[in-house]
């Protein structure tokens, strides 16, 4: 029995290992440790990274924890990635403090660290490939004000109140309204964890509580889709919905007129720039502190334009 169980365990692991393909020793592999894995946004980052990988002839190993609260799991992933002693890594810190000891270890081992999506509070990363979330959310606030005619009530469904992106987008939106559009009142800010269903329920509750609401802003893909679902399920008309990020559901909502428009980052660009920066660092090139990967406003009028389609993902 002893052998049976052990063999079974080994067989399972072996089968998985071989079927998924193991990196050959010669090929250069750059691991990217992202904040999440299942979200379309992260899969788009992965696509961009793999494009760059193909272009420059390196292998990309893209991993991330199941959800964006698992700070310790991300650190375990970072530790495993460092075991292979790669020439460079990409890292999107869920909590930058927690990762610093390992990043320092990487630095000591001569591994170039490229931060992406959000920064790391330290001088270890050679550069950070990211969206200016504050500016992007401020653009959403301007668009909201424009669509509401400068006055009305709005609500925010945010994806979380901990991470830098969540905080930046929420504050970017709310502060811009307060500064530039004082007649627009933010009645509530609620957090749905970026979960479609939870955000849907939150939206319905907000709509029930505020029948005179003029607009809603969702701070990431899950939040925005949740708003769209909630509006659809409660049968509300005439609400200005502004989303963030991309994905098939959001694009459909914009085409159907349920959503006024959305801010898109350039996740493919983030992935691509991260890998390119890593290779540049390996070649000893000097890099800027921040690589702004950009953001765009898209709505029904421009969604099919080529430069927008290039940064959207399904």
């Amino acid at each position: 029995m002893l052998n049976r169980r052990s063999l079974m365990a080994s067989a399972v692991a072996l089968a998985v290992a071989s079927s998924a393909g193991i990196a050959s020793a010669q090929e250069t592999t750059i691991p990217l440790i992202s904040k999440g894995f299942q979200h379309q946004f992260w899969q788009a980052v992965r696509t961009g990274a793999e494009q760059a990988g193909e272009e420059f002839g390196v292998r990309i190993d893209f991993v991330g924890p199941d959800n964006e609260s698992q700070v310790d799991r991300q650190i375990d992933m970072l530790a495993a990635a460092l075991a292979n002693n790669p020439p460079a890594i990409g890292f999107a810190a869920l909590d930058s403090q927690a990762a610093i000891p390992l990043l320092r270890q990487a630095q000591d081992a001569g591994i170039h660290v490229v931060a992406f999506d959000s920064g790391v509070d330290s001088d270890i990363p050679v550069t950070t490939a990211t969206t200016n979330n504050v500016a992007a959310a401020a653009l959403a606030a301007d668009k909201m004000a424009e669509l509401l005619g400068g006055t009305g009530k709005v609500a925010v469904v945010a994806h979380d109140q901990v991470s830098a992106t969540g905080v930046d987008r929420r504050d970017g939106f709310v502060n811009r309204l307060a500064e530039a559009h004082p007649d627009i009142e933010v009645v509530t800010i609620q957090y749905g964890g970026g979960d479609h269903l939870q955000s849907t329920e939150i939206t319905k509750a907000i709509l029930t509580a505020n029948p005179d609401l003029g607009g809603m802003f969702g701070t990431n893909e899950g939040s925005a889709i949740g708003i769209v679902n909630g509006v659809r399920e409660s049968g509300t008309d005439g609400l200005i919905v502004i989303g963030y990020d991309s994905g098939a559901a959001q694009q459909d909502a914009i085409r159907d007129g349920l959503m006024a428009g959305a801010i898109t980052q350039n996740p493919v660009g983030i992935g691509y720039e991260t890998v390119r920066a890593a290779l540049a660092a390996m070649n000893g090139e000097e890099l800027d502190e921040i690589i702004d990967t950009g953001f765009f406003w898209y709505d029904a009028s421009n969604i099919d334009e080529e430069h927008i389609q290039a940064v959207l993902y399904d």
Partner: peptide
């Protein structure tokens, strides 16, 4: 298992499957 499969650069989707099977 989690560390070993990551060191082997097994795709993350398959790591989850392996855990369930184990």
């Amino acid at each position: 298992l989690a560390n070993g499969l990551r060191v082997l650069s097994v795709a993350q989707e398959w790591q989850i499957v392996a855990m369930g099977l184990i």
